[in-house]
Design a protein around this nucleic acid. Structure first.
Lengths: 127, 127
DNA sequence: CGAAAGTACATGCACGCGCATCTAATGCCA
DNA sequence: TGGCATTAGATGCGCGTGCATGTACTTTCG
C-alpha cells in the first residue's frame, strides 16, 4: 500500500537527519550562548511548564526529552543543582519522585522561549 | 508568506525530534546487534561506497555524517582500527587525507545495508 | 622571497550518553 | 503473610561528542 522505493526511503532519512542536525545544532548554540541552557534542559523545562502545578513524574520526563532513563535522571540532577527544578518524594508510590519547576526555573524558561521560537522559525521553514 | 504559528512550529519540531529518535534508536539497536556497527559508522560507509574509487576527503565525510570535524576524525580512526577504511596522504594537498573503503569495509557495508533499509521501512513510514 | 593568515586534520579535555546494575518500594500469588 | 517478580529511580563505567588547541602545510600579500 504505502510502499515506497528503497531510494526514496533513504532520501527521507537523509533529509530527516539533515534537518534534525541543522535545527538541533542551531538551538544548542543559541540556547547555550544566550541562556546557558542545553536542548534537553529546555525540553524538560517546556514539559514541566506545561504540567499542572509544574509537577511531573520522572518517567514522563524521560519520554519527553527523548533520553534514556539514566540520562534523564542525571539531567534532573543537573537541573536541580542549578536551581531549575526540585525533586520531591511521591507519597503514593515511594519509589517514584516528582520533579517540580521552581520559580527560577520558570523564569529561565520564559526568558529562553523567544530564542527557542526564533531559531525554529529560521531553521525549520523548509519543511 | 510561509508564516506559520508558533504552536505549529513547535509541533513540527517535536515531531521531528520524535521521528528522529525513533528511527535513530532503532537503527543503532539493529546495526549494533547484527553487524556491530553504529549509525555514524554506517553513514560513513554508505558515503564512501558512493564515492568514485571509494575515496573521500575527510571534510566531506564530516559533513556527510553530521558530526563535528573532531568527531569525524576519531570516527575514521576507529574505522581504520577495525579495518573498514584506510587513510592515505593526499599528494595534491599534503595537509589533507583520503579515506578509502577497504574490501572488508565494503563487505561489511553490503551485509548491513538490508538491515538498515528494513529498519527505515518499518520506522519511517508514517512520514 | 618571507612572514602572517588561513586551512586540514589530530588530540587533550571535560562532559553527557546508554548499558548494566544496584537499591528500595510495590504487586502478585500461593 | 512470605517470597519472588516487577518497577522507579540512582549510579559505576566505558565511550563518543564538541570545543579549544596543536601541528603541519598552503595561500596571500607586502
Amino acid at each position: 500500500m504505502g510502499d515506497v522505493s528503497e531510494v526514496e526511503l533513504v532520501r527521507r532519512w537523509q533529509g530527516l537527519l539533515a534537518r534534525h542536525a541543522a535545527v538541533y545544532n542551531a538551538l544548542e548554540q543559541e540556547l547555550r550562548q544566550h541562556h546557558d541552557l542545553g536542548v534537553p534542559e529546555f525540553e524538560a523545562l517546556e514539559r514541566l511548564a506545561g504540567c499542572q502545578l509544574g509537577k511531573c513524574r520522572g518517567a514522563e520526563l524521560s519520554e519527553a526529552v527523548h533520553l534514556s532513563q539514566s540520562a534523564a535522571s542525571r539531567l534532573v540532577a543537573r537541573m536541580e543543582r542549578d536551581g531549575l527544578v526540585e525533586r520531591s518524594l511521591c507519597e503514593d508510590d515511594r519509589r517514584g519522585i516528582f520533579v517540580r519547576l521552581t520559580e527560577h526555573g520558570r523564569r529561565r524558561y520564559l526568558d529562553a522561549r523567544p530564542t527557542h521560537r526564533a531559531v525554529l522559525a529560521t531553521t525549520l521553514d523548509p519543511q
